[in-house]
């Protein structure tokens, strides 16, 4: 958590934000990323002594892309509605900087079992931010948590309204900015300017 890939290194938020309007899509995305990241780390770690240095990026890319295709097909087979919701963003796990970054920085140097743990840890760290952003966006945007209405009807009658901005894209930027701020204040890291 101290080295959280999103809030410290700001990697891989490309595909992350668009699917965080509700918690359930964020959870499915997290599971997909953890699966792809840990399996790709293990595969690349097994191959690490046989990969020529010059073509390593393209080999890592093909391993990752194949795993993403499998994840996509599994989702289409078992959770068709969810795969429609995630749409192109599931495919964008390929270009997620975390997956390639961990393969390059960790799996190329370490044994498969360590790489598996590293993949799971990073995937879960990434997922925790996704779910946190989704939690706030769903709470303020729809008044619900994981699909269950939590803000009572009386409050709406009293003049409370859902905040439409949270569902739109600026809401995600603001919440992620604030989470990064809180996390960095807690861990005491900061950039130059």
């Amino acid at each position: 958590m101290g080295e959280n890939p999103i809030s410290i290194h700001v990697l891989g938020i490309c595909s992350a934000l668009a699917i965080t309007t509700k918690i359930d899509t964020a959870v499915v995305m997290t599971i997909a990323v953890v699966a792809v990241l840990s399996i790709s780390n293990v595969v690349i770690s097994f191959l690490r002594n046989n990969i020529p240095n010059k073509v390593r990026i393209i080999i890592q890319m093909s391993v990752i892309a194949s795993l993403v295709i499998i994840a996509d097909q599994v989702l289409k087979a078992y959770m068709y509605d969810m795969s429609k919701l995630l749409g192109v963003f599931l495919g964008l796990i390929i270009t997620n900087c975390i997956v390639l970054g961990r393969a390059e920085a960790y799996a190329m140097q370490n044994s498969p079992s360590k790489a598996l743990l590293d993949g799971m840890g990073n995937g879960l760290g990434y997922g925790s931010i996704l779910i946190a952003v989704a939690f706030f966006r769903e709470l303020f945007g729809f008044g619900s948590i994981y699909g269950a209405q939590v803000i009572a009807n009386q409050i709406y009658l009293g003049g409370y309204e859902n905040n439409g901005l949270m569902i739109l894209s600026p809401g995600a930027f603001f919440i992620l900015g604030l989470i990064v701020w809180a996390h960095r204040a807690y861990t005491g890291t900061s950039d130059k300017h």
Binding site: V10, P170, G171, A172, F173, F174, L176, G177, L178, V180, W181, R184, A185, G188, T189, S190, D191, K192, H193
Partner: peptide, 16 residues
């Protein structure tokens, strides 16, 4: 604020 510098601020600006 020091911990907002860099990425945090960039995210808020992007939001705006």
């Amino acid at each position: 604020p020091s911990s907002l510098r860099g990425v945090g601020m960039a995210m808020l600006l992007t939001g705006l």
